[in-house]
Each structure stands twice: as C-alpha cells, then as structure tokens.
Write a protein that binds this DNA or RNA. Structure first.
Lengths: 253, 253
DNA sequence: AATGTTGATTGATCTATATCAAATATTTAT
DNA sequence: ATAAATATTTGATATAGATCAATCAACATT
C-alpha cells in the first residue's frame, strides 16, 4: 500500500497544476473552468525515491497515477516467484489502468529514480466524466491508446529478432522522451539492463551485446546509462519500422 | 469498409436482444428501462461468412462489435506486408476497442467461420454512458480488462516456452468457451494452425508437433479442429499456471 | 584508499525452435 | 468424381539467442 497520506506538503513544481495531465488527457480542450474542476481532484504526492512502490499487486484500486517527472516500471510477479517487467512509464504518462477492471491492481509499479507522481482518484474522475463529455472521451482515448501500445509490444515480442527489439525499444523511448515535437536524440536509460532484457524477452547478455554492437557500428552511442542516437534512419531500418518520411506507403515492395 | 447496410433483415436469434452484451457489459445490473435504451442503439447485422472482414485497417472507427456467435481473428499488417494475428474473439466478446483512440481502426478483423456480429455505435454508447453511470463504468471495465488480457499475452510471448504457450492457449480458449460456469472440456479450433502459430509467435511446424506430442501423452486429444482436454491439471502444470484449487497461494515455495 | 557488492560486458558453449524439405491429408474447384 | 490448391504433419538440419563462466567497471562502506 502507498503509505504517504501527506498531500501537497511540498511546494516545488506547483506551477504545473495539472501534473502534466494536460499533455496526455486534454489536447482537445476543456474550458478553463472544467480544467479547474479536474485540477481540484488531482492529488500531489511526495516524490517517490528510487525503488519505492507506487502500488503493489493486489492493492485496492482507487486511483490512476500520472508521472510528472522521473520514471516508473510496472511488473508482474508470476506464481512461481519470477518477476516480469510489463512496461516503463515516463514523464507525462499514466499508470494503473489495468486496475479499473477488477478494482485491485494487477501488477506492481516502482520508481526507477526519484519520481514525482500525481494521484487521480478514479471514482472522482469517472464522476467528472459524467458532466464533461470531452473528459470522458479523453479517458476512453487513454485506455484505448494503452491497448494499441500493448499490441505493438505483442508484435515486438512475437515476431521480432533481438536486434529488432532493441532498435524498436530505443526508438520508442526516444520518441517518448519528447512527446511533443521531435524525438530526443539523447536520453538517459533509467532502467537497468536486466529490466530492459526482461521487458523485451531477452537475456541481459544479449541486450548488452547488441548495445555494444550498435555502438561499434556508430548507429548509436550507449555508454552506461546515456544513450545517443546518431543514425536514427539506420536504427529504423534495423527495427523494420518505416521511415517517418516513407509515412504511409503500403503497397510497395 | 463494411458493405452491408441492411439491418435486421433476418429474424433468427432475435431472442437475445442484447447480442450477448449482457454477459460482457452488464453484470452489475441496469434497470430494464436502461437495458432497453442500450438495446435500441445496437444494430444487428447480416452474419459474416468465413473470411469476410468486420473492419479493415484504416477504416474510420464508428462502432464496437460484439460477437454473438462464431469467431473472429484480428490481425495487423506490417509495413513489410507480413501479417500478424493479434487476437481471437469468441462469442460474447467485444471487438474494435483499439479504434477509440485514433478514430480509425488499427488492424483488421475477419470472420473465422460464419459469424453473427452486433454493431454498437460508439458515439451513441458514449452518450448513453453520460446518462447511465453504471454503463460508463462497464465500458471502462471492458477496456481495462482488454489491457489486462494483453499483458497476459505479453508475458506469454516474452517468457514462455513453446510448450507453455500452447498449453496456456488451449486453457484460455477452453475457459473462454464457457464464460459462465466451467471451462469447456471439448471445443472447436475455428482458426488454422498457422493463425495459432502466428498469434503465439511460433512456427506452424512447432504448433503441429506440440499438438501431436500432447495428444500422444494423452493430456489432450486434438484431431484436426476438435480439441478435447483430458487432463486439465497436467495442462496447467505444463503452462505453469496455478491449479484452480491452489487459488491465491502466493508465499509458497 | 581499500574492500565488498552489484551491474555490465565479453567469450564459449548448448539447446530450443526456426527453417528447409517432403509426405499426407483436407478442402475447393472443375 | 477427379484434379488442383491448400493445410497439416513429420523428419532432418541450422541457428539465434540462452546459459554458463569469467572479467571488468561503478558505486557504496568502512
């Protein structure tokens, strides 16, 4: 269970009153008034330290969580004790959607670094959705988006080679580091190699090997936690993903 | 695009006025009145023949689809022309949730056999959700459930051996054939071996081999399309899934 | 600074599963 | 019914990536 009940006890980052929610949930525009109402139900929490849990498997589901800064991993614990990373969540992303269905969280969420989190009580959000159709639509959209994201990962796990997986992973991460505008050319891996390996269904050694290989080829530059993407186009080729220019060409060779 | 605009042109199965929706969406109970309103927005369609599309990648998203009888596969078409099965949908299940987010379907859905489908215009459903909180909650729940399901598949694809995948697949299928009550001991595989292989991230040959192996071991009996599960417990062992009695034992060896 | 601990890299094998190839079986078309 | 096309099974071989093992680098503790 989350053990901090002290809300708004710190003052930093107050500026962003919507906890980055505006970036995820509200692009289609609510009135300032509606924004205010939404804002009023969102709780700021004391930042989580590296390794701290946001929620645990089996916790009663009450809220969604929005990552303001930092990053989070979600993972399931198999019946045989094994742990399996199901996702990484960066600044501006939403957490805990799996819990809506069964009223308790299925899976754990843990901070990968010092991480600022907002809590959005789901009952209140849902009630608010009754009054503000736009908001309800946005919540639907966030859920649907998650489904789409996961299908992408299924594809990745089901049919892609280890190299393709790593390339996809890096590209996706880069694009998520700059949601708006362009993908980051340089960013930090907040998660360990073994987290990455686990998430991608690979062995740590394989991840490491491919990181060094791609670095030697000059396509990226991965040093410890720092990733720099030198040749995005080449990386996309490896990932078998279309070039952003080649956009919607479908019926080609 | 779906090309049949003739609604309610046939009379069979009229009895089930909610298109099985009651099983998925409404266990928590709406008033008969609310049920009626919901019913009024649902459109019955002419049954789809084997191979017919329910929707295609890129189609504008207008509706969710509920499978009344028969079965459907959903699949994505990669930029390289490859096709990847993302799911199977049996009677009583809902289709098209991925479309909510981007207003167009991402992926295709095709009938695996003669299949009866209901169409639920999403705008109307969403509007109805504004008035009926219970309904809105249920839609949230369906979406969240889909997320949970997909995480299960991610686990399967990421960490399980071919034998574990097949065993899991069969168990899940069996349990879905009898949503209420017990899992079916016997059922029909409406999808081809290669669909199964594709879905599970395996080669057709591997699927075939494991089917025959499991049959020789007497655990199941798979003949052509007919599956009979003789030893569910053994199958669960192979799948590394907890026995239904061993229910929620977590802190054991 | 020295020492221990944990995480990352690199190399050497081994194996599960893909791939290739061919034989049956089943469905569809003529 | 017969033939052609397609799907499934079975066997032989190849290989991507896991596993095992050792070293190396980073960080924490005394």
């Amino acid at each position: 269970m989350t053990n901090d009940t002290n809300v708004t006890q710190f003052t930093q980052k107050r500026d962003c009153s919507l906890c980055n929610l505006s970036e995820i949930c509200l692009p289609e525009g609510l009135t300032p008034d509606e924004m205010g109402t939404l804002d009023s139900i969102i709780k700021r929490r004391k930042p989580k330290q590296k390794g701290e849990f946001i929620f645990r498997d089996g916790d009663t589901f009450t809220s969604l969580y929005a990552v303001r800064s930092g990053s989070v991993k979600t993972f399931a614990t198999g019946n045989d004790g094994s742990t399996m990373v199901t996702g990484f969540h960066l600044s501006g992303e939403i957490l805990g959607l799996e819990g809506i269905n069964c009223k308790q969280h299925v899976g754990n969420a843990k901070a990968l670094e010092t991480t600022s989190i907002c809590e959005i009580p789901f009952n209140q959000l849902s009630a608010l959705g009754q009054d503000i159709p736009k908001l309800q639509q946005q919540v639907f959209r966030v859920l649907s988006n998650e489904i789409g994201q996961e299908q992408q990962v299924m594809l990745l796990l089901g049919k892609k080679s280890s190299e393709e997986r790593i390339a996809s992973f890096l590209l996706r991460l880069a694009s998520r580091y700059h949601t708006r505008g362009f993908a980051a050319k340089e960013f930090n891996l907040s998660m360990s190699r073994s987290d990455i390996a686990n998430y991608l269904g690979l062995a740590v050694e394989t991840v490491s090997r491919i990181f060094t290989r791609l670095t030697k080829q000059g396509i990226v530059n991965i040093n410890r936690k720092l990733v720099m993407i030198n040749d995005e186009s080449a990386l996309r080729d490896i990932a078998n993903e279309p070039q952003p220019d080649t956009d919607k060409k479908r019926t080609n060779s």
